[in-house]
């Protein structure tokens, strides 16, 4: 399973097959987690909620429906955006370590690349929104751009702070996940640094609902305000692709948090040496970690809050979250001096 340790031996075939497997796994678990999310949120709100497999049914239904393209819209761009969004979401999946394994394309790109790649699905949504030529989608696209620019900075601060700290303990490129996994942030810092790391973790947990467009940061879609905003004109297959990309993106984002802050594996701890059982144990452990992070940063937040206005959301990201991120950075620095 160690695909990437000597990259020169990686054949194109292995990458292609691996990507397809990862895409399928990502889609499956993305939809599964969406189902769990909806079920748990429903129970927290005193409802029964849909069956856990509902997102799969949604996709099947959407794929069978007609894709309507608005008259005034830019047809090719309108149809290209869902594809771009999905493809980049899957691409992200190949750069992030999932299921307790190394990332498929490790060595071909690092955390900085991921920072840039994370923008593209949102950008595809924005372009698709503008291409719909609907006033609701236009407002949604404007809002998505604002929110994107707002959470980008705290996200970058959190990621760079961790890499910067790790760069002080090793000479290996700290922007690579295997380095982050080798030197987990919690093991490198003292008590002050732990507080700083918690601040960074908090920043990332708050950025996550913004990245995956959930209440209170679902401003670009805001059903009651702009009728679904960016997605208002999308239907059928195009909407299904966005839906799928959205679930994968949520899975990716949460996996990123897990990879940065909880890169631990269970198999060395309980002493499983054999490859196959270790992979199974680590995969299950990884899924559990993803569930916990998702529960806190998506499900809990979205059931406990009302939607923010765009000005309030960007204030929270640009001012409050960036400040918390910077405080975390400073605390980690102070920890090093002390």
């Amino acid at each position: 399973m160690d695909w990437s340790s000597n990259s020169y031996s990686l054949t194109t075939v292995a990458i292609v097959v691996g990507s397809i497997i990862l895409a399928l796994l990502g889609a499956f678990f993305g939809l599964l987690y969406r189902g769990i999310d909806r079920k748990l949120a429903a129970h927290m709100q005193g409802r029964i909620g849909p069956p856990i497999i509902q997102p799969f049914r949604d996709i099947r239904k959407l794929l069978a429906k007609e894709s309507i393209i608005p008259d005034g819209g830019l047809s090719w761009l309108f149809q290209a955006c869902p594809f771009i969004c999905l493809v980049v979401s899957i691409l992200l999946l190949t750069y992030i370590p999932v299921f307790g394994q190394r990332a498929l394309l490790e060595g071909y790109g690092d955390l900085v690349l991921i920072l840039y790649l994370l923008i593209i699905p949102s950008l595809a949504l924005v372009v698709g929104g503008f291409a719909s030529s609907s006033p609701f989608a236009t407002v949604g696209a404007q809002r998505e751009m604002v929110i994107m620019m707002s959470y980008e900075f705290p996200l970058a601060v959190a990621i760079i702070a961790i890499a910067w700290r790790i760069s002080h303990v090793t000479d290996i490129n700290p922007f690579i996940f295997s380095t982050v996994a080798q030197y987990p942030i919690w093991n490198q810092v003292g008590p002050v640094g732990v507080i700083g790391s918690l601040a960074l973790l908090f920043t990332l947990l708050v950025v996550t609902p913004g990245e995956v467009a959930k209440v209170p940061f679902d401003i670009a879609e805001a059903e009651t305000e702009i009728a679904g905003g960016l997605l208002v004109e999308y239907s059928g297959r195009n909407l299904a692709l966005f839906y799928l990309a959205d679930t994968i993106r949520a899975f990716v984002m949460v996996s990123l948090v897990v990879a940065l802050f909880f890169p631990y594996n269970l198999s060395p701890v309980i002493g499983i040496g054999a490859t196959a059982p270790a992979v199974i144990v680590d995969s299950l452990f990884f899924l559990l970690k993803v569930f916990l992070v998702m529960f806190i940063s998506v499900i809990l937040i979205r059931t406990a809050m009302a939607r923010f206005k765009i000005s309030q959301a960007s204030y929270i990201y640009i001012i409050a979250m960036t400040l918390i991120g910077l405080v975390g950075l400073i605390l980690i620095h102070v920890d090093m001096i002390v």
């Binding site: 709100q45 005193g46 209440v215 209170p216």
Partner: peptide, 15 residues
């Protein structure tokens, strides 16, 4: 509550 996207309160109050 529903208008401001606060679904939990919406369900709570209607119950």
């Amino acid at each position: 509550a529903h208008e401001i996207g606060f679904e939990s309160v919406f369900y709570l109050v209607w119950r």
